[in-house]
Simulated assay, not measured.
Amino acid sequence: MQTDTQEKETIMEPVHRQFLWKRPIVLMGIAAFTTAGTALAANAADAAHTLKTVAQIAPELRPQGVPLDYLVTPVGFFSPSCVKRVQDDTAPGAARCTQPHYRYDGARVEPNGAFFPGKIKASAAAYYSGPIEDAHLTLKDPIGKFQAEWVVPKAPADIDTQSVYYSIEAEGIGPSNSATVLRSELSYEMGFPNPGAWELTVWVQSEGKLYYSGPVEVNEGDVIVGDITKKSGNTWSVRATDKRTGEAVGREATVYEMQKIYGGVLRVRDVRNCNQFPSGSPFVFSKVEAFAPNLVDRYSLPWTLNPPKSISLPCKFGVSTGPDSSIILSY
């Protein structure tokens, strides 16, 4: 996804009244914000969960210059000191990460936001890693809740080393005027500890750090509900729930002003052909809804559709809207 300065702005039209524009988000490298935590119960499969390290990526696929102990996340490579799995009610610390992180293309992003292009080995050029497509909306009005449903798809026909991530997200302004991102995510990873499993995870990005809860393993055909909801004051929650089992993961975060929502996002890592996406394109986010602070009035959502740009994979990518307030991601 691009930053606010790169994207075309769009307006969320209120049902009953008009609001003033909010001030722009200040982004530093990646989204940053302060969290306060309540992690929901996860299943037993997550007890031994560890994120994959760069050292566990095939040497020919590693971007040059990324430290081998860095952790692989849906949004790049991060120092172990800047990634924390949260399983209890303890609020994670808010100290800013002092280590750079790296994008999938090897670009280094310093804690102050300074950006340095990276290098990809020739052997990795046939693989794509990064964001593919999304539908997003710059908010004009305050919201109290944002939610969507989706169905866990079939596994890819061609299974190699790839990871695929589907999510809904919200960005806002947190303490110290830092940008805030909350992400409710479904992922398919050929990683650890459950390679080839579909899993739910929620992510919080804060001051250059990543906090996450989960994962919860889910099955093909399960209906998932992702929601991002204002609780009280400046406290927001982000959750992912399996409607079949009732299992869920969640976190809370401090957000002063929510400013952008993503009704559907597709990211990947190490994909080299179209059969490495989940079978059964397209992927549909349905019942994508945003509510006013009273949690009753619903807004109309004129999405900005952001299809892929400069991706060499010969897939039938595309973003569209459909019935049942849906966002459709094709590949």
Rank of each mutant, 00 (worst) to 15 (best):
V202F: 08
I224G: 01
T50V: 15
H16M: 12
I311F: 01
T10Y: 02
P215F: 10
V284N: 04
T35S: 12
W203G: 02
R251M: 15
D46K: 09
G174I: 01
V83T: 12
A148C: 08
S163Y: 10
E199G: 12
T138V: 06
K121D: 05
F277E: 02
K209S: 15
V238L: 05
T3D: 09
A240W: 06
I328H: 02
F285S: 01
E110P: 06
L200S: 05
S281L: 11
P153V: 10
D222V: 06
M1E: 08
L139R: 02
K8D: 14
Y256D: 14
K309P: 01
G250R: 01
H136T: 10
A91M: 13
I173Q: 08
N112Q: 09
E13Q: 11
G113H: 10
V75I: 15
L305W: 08
E185G: 04
D270A: 09
N234G: 09
L20S: 11
F277T: 00
W198T: 03
Q64R: 14
R272L: 01
F33W: 07
D227H: 06
T241M: 10
K8E: 14
S326I: 03
Y299L: 14
G280V: 15
A44Q: 14
A248C: 09
A44P: 09
I328F: 04
P156N: 07
K243C: 04
T73L: 13
I261G: 00
T229Y: 00
N219H: 14
A48G: 14
F277P: 00
C315D: 02
P314V: 00
G144M: 05
Y212T: 07
T254D: 11
S232W: 03
G226V: 04
Q259C: 08
P282L: 07
S300M: 13
Y256E: 15
D158E: 13
D134Y: 04
L200G: 03
L40D: 13
V202T: 10
V249W: 02
I228T: 01
D105V: 06
D105Q: 05
T201G: 05
N275M: 13
S187Y: 07
F77E: 02
A55K: 15
M190K: 11
S176T: 12
E9F: 07
G113E: 12
A240N: 04
L301M: 15
I173H: 02
T180W: 00
N112M: 13
T245Q: 12
G280F: 11
I328C: 05
P282Y: 06
A148S: 15
G214N: 10
K121S: 11
G233T: 05
Q6I: 04
T254K: 06
F115R: 13
T34E: 10
A179D: 13
S167L: 03
A39P: 05
D134C: 04
P111G: 10
R269M: 09
I25D: 03
V181S: 04
T5D: 12
E185S: 11
V86I: 14
S325W: 04
S300P: 05
P282E: 08
M28S: 13
E110I: 05
R108C: 12
L20H: 10
Y299V: 12
T321K: 03
S326M: 05
V26H: 11
M190A: 09
E185P: 03
I173P: 01
Q205D: 11
F116P: 03
H49E: 14
Q6W: 06
V109E: 05
T34R: 04
Y127E: 00
I228Y: 01
P278F: 08
V15G: 10
